[in-house]
Amino acid sequence: MSRPYNIHRVQKNKFNAQKILFPIFKYALLILAAFIALVPIVTCIITAFKTKSEYSGTSVMTLPKSWLNFDNFRVAWEKGHMAVAFKNTFIILVCVLVGSTFISAMIAYVISRFKFIGNRFIRSLFMIAALIPGIASQVTVYQIMYNLHLINTLYGYIILMLGTDVISIYIFLQFFENLPSSLDEAAILDGCNYFGVFFRILFPLLRPAIITSAILKGVSTYNEYYMANLYLQDKNKYQVISTSLYAFTGPMGNQYQYICAGVIITIIPALIIFLFCQNYIYSGISQGAVKE
């Protein structure tokens, strides 16, 4: 079949205009957006390397004289009690990640595999819990933590973080629903009990889901500051990374060369995780979306 010649040509011209103009427009937009996204962070890095006199004497956009001036970082590290903070954050992260992986995987296993009275009810209990904004319930959670003597203890904070976790359950639920249950049945016919099925057969298969949920949970735990501030009040002993920057409010509130250095220190771990695990993060976000 042959098309009339002129129509063909009109289409081709339009196509060319799109082919030239559109990419210019597109890349201009993307570069502008990336610029806006990164400028606040990059200026922070620039400022973190400036000496006191450079900071007060030059424009915020001037590059520092030396990129090897780590004095601000040293001050920030000491003022923010970052050594203690990193140690505490590390302990919290390990406990919360191990705990929440097992807890969420176990809930997801039972809910997705077993038929029992209250199954749907328990499922909804967890889903509704996700709707209650954490900040709202802290008014009364504070009292409970106080009565249980869990304030100013690392384990209290860890228990609290374990108890308010729904993203991981979502991810594991979805993963279990995609694992064929013939797998469990075969194992059971071979004489495996349900504990064995879970720990020996299914748990190893969960690896991708474990990595995804651990990264998402890890980042949110690392950045959680509201509850940390509320329940870990003894700043000398129980400082964590997310709240370490509070040391710079007050008299140091306008010495931004130190503050920026502190900010950069707290961002670096997140950046490293991001650079190595971006694909897990992206897929985790999309998985959570399907269920919501």
């Binding site: 957006a33 990336a34 996204a37 990164l38 606040p40 962070i41 922070c44 980042v219 690392y222 950045n223 500051y225 509201y226 990374i241 997310s242 709240t243 920057l245 509070y246 710079f248 503050i259 920026c260 502190g262 900010v263 707290t266 961002i267 997140a270 950046l271 995780i273 991001f274 971006q278 993060i281 992206y282």
Partner: peptide
């Protein structure tokens, strides 16, 4: 994609100071 997504990963207090 990374540049546009990365701000999500920065902690609240740090964002406040930034």
């Amino acid at each position: 994609r990374g540049a546009l997504y990365f701000p999500c990963l920065i902690g609240g207090i740090a964002v406040g100071f930034i």
